[in-house]
Structure formats: structure tokens, C-alpha cells
């Protein structure tokens, strides 16, 4: 054994541990963008993943179609019952939209926090170890994607934000990732509107935590939760999910609501990256500590 400790292998091991710690420290830093070699590697593998993504899509689509066929009958029944309501709803929406537009014109307000430009993208990769909930999409800076933009699933629910961008690909961090700096300013819809921030994910119950709601807020189950747009980068009114449970927080000064996300974090095929139309406030002027709200 003592011979082992004099071994040059041990020194090698110790040196590599030091390098390991240094590298992890380097990559955990809040980074504005990835280094050039990293971007190059990601784009290169993104290209290969793109090649595989197409046939993979066909195969999974085929199996999903078969599965869909199985419960077509029951679905059809339910959808028919909803169809009657839909016609009325559509007419209402049209009228309201027109009215809203007219009123806005009277007020002279052209842009709203709600407007956004969507960018369609396909998922080409996902982190296999699933400690970091990351997916890779096939659109990048050349398509106008920037860091911290909101990402929405094909059924219209918020699923995450853009973590980093390369020329031709971008990396997206899902809402289910545990990241203390990942905060989203959210709003609970109801008779009264309450604001809070989405902070963290309960892996056990698969629910999002909506914290910092005022202690006297009366929140009921099944109330809808949407983004408030007050964070500065996300547009307003992107659906997140609905409230399942409300608890007072540890000091009793605030409440924490548990929100069931409307998007499925698995089997994501197509996503929409959302670019807010209204100008973004200059974050560096507003935020004085390191954490930023989205």
C-alpha cells in the first residue's frame, strides 16, 4: 500500500481531480455565451443529430398514430360534445378581438406585452442522463434565437427557456430542471389576480412551485397560471398550467402554490421559440444582484 501512495499514478489522479474541479467551476459560472470550441462541437454534433432526427420522427410518429387509432372512438364522442360550444366561443372571440383592437386604437397603444413572434423548431436531441433537463433544437442564432427566450410546446404551454445558442442549434432548459436562477414571473388568473414567481420543480410530485404569493391571497384549485410578462423577457399570457395545491411557506409570510404544468416534458417533438415584440428593458440597469427574473 505505501508503494501505491508514492506512485506517479496517484499524482496523476490528484492532478486530474484538480483539473476536474477547475473545469466544473469554470462551466458553472454564469456564462453569457459558450466558448467558441464548445459552440463548434455542438453545431457539429447537431448536424449529425439532424440526420438521425428525421427517420426517428417517422418511426415514433407511426407508433403514436397506431396508438391514437385505438382510442379514436371515445375521443370522437367527447369531441363532438364540445363542438357545439366551440362555434359560440369562436364567435365571441372574434367579436372580443375586434373590440379589443378598436379600444387599443382609441388609446393609441400599438404594442402589447402579449404580442410575440413564434419561431418553429424541431427537437434533435435530449440529455440522456436527465440530471440536467436539456433539449437541443435545430434552430440557432441565424434564425434569430437569443438567450433566455421563452419556449412553448406544440400544445401552447410554456416548457422552458433558451439556455444557450450556437449558430445553427440552440439548447433549451426545461421547466423541470432544478436551477435556482431559473425564475419566471407568473400570474394566477381568477377574480383577483395574484403574482408570484415559478421557482423550482418538485421531482417527487412532478409539480412546479409558484412561490412568493401574498399570504392573504385566496387561491383555489384549478385556477390557471400564466406568465405575467413582468420579468422583462417573456411575453404575457403564455399558459403554464393550473394550481393543484396551496401551502403557506416556511415562515408563513408568503404562500406557495403547486402548479401542474400543462405541457408534457417527455416526448417533445416540435417546439416554438417565442420572441417578444415589445422592447426588452435593459436588464443590467434594472437588476443589481446576480439573480435575474424571466
Amino acid at each position: 500500500m505505501p508503494q501505491f501512495f508514492l506512485n506517479k499514478r496517484l499524482i496523476f489522479l490528484l492532478v486530474s481531480i484538480i483539473i476536474l474541479v477547475a473545469l466544473i467551476g469554470f462551466s458553472l459560472r454564469e456564462r453569457e455565451e459558450l466558448t467558441v470550441p464548445e459552440q463548434f462541437l455542438k453545431d457539429a454534433t447537431g448536424w449529425i443529430q439532424n440526420v438521425f432526427a428525421k427517420p426517428q420522427g417517422y418511426v415514433t410518429d407511426f407508433f403514436e398514430n397506431v396508438k391514437d387509432l385505438q382510442n379514436t372512438y371515445s375521443e370522437n364522442k367527447e369531441l363532438k360534445s364540445r363542438l357545439d360550444k366551440l362555434a359560440k366561443l369562436e364567435a365571441d372571440v372574434q367579436q372580443l378581438e375586434k373590440e379589443n383592437k378598436e379600444l387599443r386604437e382609441i388609446l393609441g397603444e400599438k404594442e402589447s406585452l402579449r404580442d410575440y413572434d413564434p419561431i418553429q423548431a424541431t427537437v434533435i436531441g435530449r440529455n440522456p442522463d436527465r440530471w440536467h433537463e436539456i433539449i437541443i433544437i435545430n434552430k440557432g442564432e441565424v434564425n434569430g434565437i437569443e438567450q433566455n427566450m421563452a419556449v412553448v410546446s406544440s400544445n401552447g404551454y410554456l416548457i422552458g427557456k433558451v439556455k444557450s445558442t450556437q449558430q445553427f442549434t440552440a439548447t433549451i432548459q426545461l421547466l423541470s430542471a432544478m436551477d435556482p436562477t431559473n425564475r419566471i414571473s407568473a400570474e394566477i388568473k381568477g377574480n383577483d389576480e395574484y403574482f408570484g414567481t415559478i421557482e423550482g420543480y418538485d421531482v417527487d410530485r412532478e409539480l412546479l412551485k409558484l412561490k412568493r404569493i401574498p399570504y392573504d391571497a385566496k387561491i383555489e384549485k384549478e385556477q390557471k397560471v400564466v406568465t405575467s410578462g413582468l420579468g422583462g423577457i417573456f411575453p404575457q399570457n403564455l399558459s403554464i398550467g393550473e394550481v393543484v395545491d396551496v401551502e403557506p411557506d416556511e415562515f408563513g409570510l408568503n404562500q406557495t402554490a403547486y402548479v401542474k404544468p400543462g405541457a408534457n416534458f417527455y416526448n417533445i417533438r416540435n417546439v416554438m421559440v417565442v420572441k417578444r415584440v415589445m422592447d426588452q428593458p435593459n436588464l443590467s440597469e434594472m437588476v443589481d444582484d446576480e439573480e435575474e427574473e424571466l
Binding site: 474541479v21 477547475a22 455542438k42 436531441g125 440529455n127 442522463d129
Partner: peptide
């Protein structure tokens, strides 16, 4: 680099 964005592990 590609999957975790934390270099080293």
C-alpha cells in the same frame, strides 16, 4: 459539452 454543458464530470 453537448448534453450537460458542465465540462468535467
Amino acid at each position: 459539452v453537448v448534453y450537460t454543458e458542465i465540462i468535467g464530470i
